[in-house]
Structures are given as structure tokens and as C-alpha cells.
């Protein structure tokens, strides 16, 4: 059971990407479960994704540091025991710190035999200036990007090329070791690269 994180600031397109990825990954025959925790939007997102025949687990509310961590571990253990998916895609809340989610998941390793796949962090290019310059957003965005294995520059179909180029340079500066790619769920750009990475990439624990 491999854990894939689709993280990123609020509104960066996480749920839309997950739906697209699940459709793409369906061809591989992989059995997929999705865990969602997007404050205030869980029921809607959950219903949308269930329409694609997925196992969708809500990991509930509470303090992201502990209540959500406990709930997430419990859900992983139940999934491992009862559903045995090949891939678990987790969509944490838009203010979550990916590294904390990864560490929490690893605490279940003894029971779930979980392996860690890539942490994909979305960066919304249509809001690049805000995300990079607003004092109240910079910290969170930088923290999330620095934890990424793959940074997906999302909504590239809707942003000027110049902005995308600048955003790519900025995010590379924040996390030089991450792979940076362009993503547009609308046009399909980047989806096959991401689905390949999801299936093939493993991150040492």
C-alpha cells in the first residue's frame, strides 16, 4: 500500500487533480483509495470522488497536529486491513504540512506495511504573485513546497507564460531537489507524467 500525498495551498486544484489522476490510473488496474481532509468541503469532495467508484475516507476534523493525525492513522489501518488498496491518495487540508502527514503515516508502518510514494505539492500559477509575495501566505506556501518531491505548477492553461516561468524559478529556489512540472487538468498536460510518478516513484522512509 503506497501513500501518495496531493498537497498544496487552498484552491490550488487538489481535488480536481485527484479525480483526473484516478481516471488515468484506472488503466493501470491499480486499486485506489482516497482520504480527504479539506475543511468545510469534505462531503462535497467525497461525493464527487465516490462517483468514480473509489473508496473515499473522510479523516475528520480537529487539530491538524493530533486529532487529524490519529484519525488518519486509524483510517490507514482500516484500509490496509479491509480494502488493501495498492495506492492511497491523501488530500490533506490546504494548511497542512506535508512532512507531518508523511511522518504520521509512517507511524502505522508496522501494521499497514505502507510505503511512501511522492508528495506532490500544487502551486497555483494563476495566483503566483499572491502566493509568493503576500506576507501572510509566504510562510505556509514555502513550508509546503519545501516538503515536495514533485511540484506541479497547476492551472498553466490559465496563466501567462511569463508568470509560469517566473513561478517555476521561484519554486525551484525554495526546493531545488524537487521535480517541477507543468499541470493543467483542463488540457491534460502533466497528468501522464504525474500518474507515472505515482506508480513508479518510491521515497525512502
Amino acid at each position: 500500500m503506497k501513500l501518495i500525498q496531493i498537497a498544496g495551498y487552498l484552491g490550488s486544484g487538489k481535488t480536481t487533480l485527484i479525480i483526473a489522476l484516478v481516471k488515468a490510473l484506472a488503466e493501470s488496474g491499480a486499486k485506489i483509495a482516497v482520504m480527504v481532509n479539506d475543511v468545510g468541503e469534505i462531503p462535497v469532495d467525497g461525493r464527487v470522488m465516490q462517483e468514480y467508484g473509489l473508496t473515499v475516507k473522510d479523516i475528520g476534523g480537529g487539530c491538524i497536529c493530533c486529532q487529524v493525525a490519529g484519525s488518519m492513522m486509524k483510517t490507514l489501518e482500516i484500509l490496509s486491513r479491509e480494502q488493501r488498496p495498492d495506492l492511497v491518495i491523501i488530500e490533506p487540508t490546504g494548511i497542512a504540512v506535508p512532512e507531518s502527514i508523511r511522518k504520521t503515516a509512517l507511524l502505522t508502518a508496522a501494521r499497514t506495511h505502507i510505503s511512501i510514494g511522492p508528495t506532490i505539492v500544487l502551486f497555483d500559477t494563476t495566483r503566483a504573485e499572491k502566493l509568493l509575495t503576500y506576507e501572510t501566505l509566504q510562510r505556509l506556501v514555502a513550508t509546503q513546497l519545501s516538503d515536495a518531491d514533485i511540484i506541479a505548477l497547476s492551472k498553466v492553461d490559465a496563466a501567462p507564460e511569463e508568470t509560469i516561468t517566473q513561478a517555476a524559478a521561484a519554486v525551484r529556489g525554495m526546493n531545488p531537489s524537487a521535480e517541477v512540472l507543468r499541470l493543467s487538468v483542463r488540457t491534460g498536460e502533466g497528468i501522464s507524467d504525474l500518474s507515472r510518478a505515482v506508480l513508479e516513484m518510491s521515497i525512502p522512509a
Binding site: G60, G61, S71
Partner: peptide
Amino acid sequence: GLLYPTIKE
């Protein structure tokens, strides 16, 4: 199982 309450609206 256990889920903490969430704010839905």
C-alpha cells in the same frame, strides 16, 4: 469508528 466533529458550513 472515531471522527472528530467538523464544521460543514
